[in-house]
């Protein structure tokens, strides 16, 4: 993934607008996104401000007649945003690497020119930060993956990937909360409940929480 040197703003039809921040995929930039999201969610005609990975989607309650004001507000908001440091919880997640669900472990190793054990230890080493929720109910995008285990997304997305899959997509990693289609490469799995619509806050994790993967088992 290339590092953009200036912010980009693009339309998602008439329903939403996407702001992509300049700079690196790292925690300081993500903290500014969290800060911008908190501000933008209070703007008129904005239904929700949804952080992505160093980007922010605004969905419209009513599509604005003209976009210039909103675009200027986003750019100014980004320039002024002080990083919002969210002190989240730390979660330990036992992971079984490889096996049927983590069947891409070997291909990630091959692609990266590493051994399976290297991929596992590199993946389990960092303390990851939940950067954003998205994709499907309760799914967390994590920041902090070692770039040595980067692997581009699939040429054609899979129709179905298992719930609890620990996967790599580009230079990102995450854990799926339920079965469904995916363009990422699963290298392992965990059993944990990430989402329940009956909880007061339906998702178990929130941006700013941290995750440590514990190697429970490696199936070679």
């Amino acid at each position: 993934m290339t590092t953009p040197d200036r912010s980009r703003i693009s339309l998602l039809g008439t329903s939403a607008l996407l702001f992509e921040a300049p700079g690196a995929f790292d925690l300081p930039h993500q903290r500014r996104i969290w800060s911008l999201a908190a501000i933008a969610s209070k703007w008129p005609d904005i239904r929700e401000a949804i952080p992505g990975i160093t980007n922010l989607m605004l969905t419209f309650e009513t599509p604005p007649r003209e976009l210039d004001t909103l675009i200027a507000a986003l750019n100014d908001g980004w320039d002024a945003a002080e990083g919002l440091a969210i002190g989240g919880r730390e979660i330990r997640l036992p992971v079984t690497y490889g096996g049927e669900i983590g069947s891409s472990l070997q291909s990630v190793a091959d692609h990266c020119g590493l051994s399976v054990d290297d991929v596992v230890s590199i993946h389990a080493a960092p303390l990851y930060t939940v950067f954003a929720l998205g994709s499907h109910p309760g799914y967390c995008y994590l920041g902090g993956m070692d770039p040595r285990i980067t692997m581009p997304r699939r040429q054609t997305p899979l129709q179905r990937s298992a719930g609890g899959s620990v996967s790599i997509g580009g230079s990102q990693t995450g854990v799926s909360a339920s079965p469904g289609p995916s363009g990422w490469h699963a290298i392992g799995h965990t059993s944990w409940t990430f989402f329940d619509p009956s909880w007061p806050t339906p998702a178990a994790l929130a941006p700013g929480d941290t995750i440590r993967f514990e190697i429970e088992r490696v199936i070679r």
């Binding site: 993934m1 998602l12 039809g13 329903s15 939403a16 996407l18 992509e20 995929f25 949804i50 992505g52 990975i53 160093t54 980007n55 922010l56 989607m57 969905t59 954003a132 998205g134 994709s135 995008y141 581009p152 997304r153 699939r154 040429q155 054609t156 997305p157 997509g169 580009g170 990102q172 363009g183």
Partner: peptide, 24 residues
């Protein structure tokens, strides 16, 4: 050139082009 984006929000109606060049 291949484009690999950082994950971001999308809405119904968005037309993605996966690497095989067939729109979704």
């Amino acid at each position: 050139a291949p484009i690999e984006k950082r994950s971001h929000g999308i809405v119904p109606g968005v037309i993605q082009i996966p690497p095989n060049g067939q729109p979704i």
